[in-house]
């Protein structure tokens, strides 16, 4: 079972690496970050303290953009059907998909974001920003996965997916931004809340995705 999981994960990662769909979301993150200083005018970014919200908004939308592709290609060329015919457990597929999605649309953003924050606003204490993004992007991926599976049946799915997913992302955004703004505080309630959401989400959302994928495929 573990060997199958590794094989599927390798296949997903290779596909993501070779195609442009995963690189697209990281590039979109950089590009949309560029818009914020330009739209705020002459470099008063440090005073307004908008770099953390800007990073969170950019991370959210780059995650959303890649979400549409999560199961679509494998569903269209019949790979998912092939897996289910061959008796490969759905849970393996869903977990592999979530991990590969997060490795390409979550982790790079969490690593790049502190550097961007340093470049834009000159603030060097960005450990909490990294930590909240590290947890938050994983939550975003997990919440998005069942909705991405649901949308497999609709023809005009892009705007629908965005509209339905965004309300569920809001708590993560709220706690993430609050957690990133607190710089040196020993008790970080927001990070514990994010950890709580993550640990609940790891249990609930893959199960939902499995149920939905079964009904969609059959």
């Amino acid at each position: 079972m573990f060997k199958v999981f590794i094989a599927i994960l390798q296949k997903d990662l290779r596909e993501n690496f070779l195609s442009n769909k995963a690189w697209f979301s990281i590039s979109f993150f950089m590009l949309s970050l560029l818009i914020f200083p330009l739209s705020f005018g002459k470099g008063n970014l440090e005073e307004q303290n908008i770099i953390i919200p800007a990073i969170w908004i950019a991370a959210l939308f780059s995650n959303l953009i890649a979400l549409e592709q999560m199961y679509k290609d494998d569903f269209k060329d019949g790979t998912l059907l092939y897996y289910s015919i061959n008796g490969i457990s759905m849970s393996i597929i869903v977990v592999a998909k979530c991990i590969s999605h997060w490795l390409f649309c979550g982790l790079p953003i969490a690593i790049i974001a502190p550097i961007c924050s340093y470049i834009f606003s000159g603030e060097s204490n960005n450990f909490y920003l990294f930590l909240t993004l590290f947890l938050g992007t994983a939550i975003l991926t997990l919440i998005g996965s069942p909705i991405s599976a649901i949308m497999l049946g609709i023809s005009a799915r892009g705007p629908m997916l965005t509209f339905i997913t965004l309300p569920f992302y809001l708590p993560t955004i709220i706690f993430g931004v609050m957690g990133s703004n607190v710089t040196n505080n020993n008790i970080n309630a927001e990070i514990y809340l994010l950890l709580a959401i993550l640990s609940l989400g790891i249990v609930i959302f893959p199960i939902l995705t499995i149920k939905i994928l079964r009904t969609v495929i059959n």
Partner: peptide, 23 residues
């Protein structure tokens, strides 16, 4: 919006049910 998107087929029923449960 989800209900309107599936106006002419029954595929939307199960997705509507799951989205409302997540919500």
């Amino acid at each position: 919006f989800l209900e309107k998107a599936f106006k002419f087929s029954n595929n939307g029923d199960i997705s509507f049910a799951y989205i409302s449960i997540i919500g």
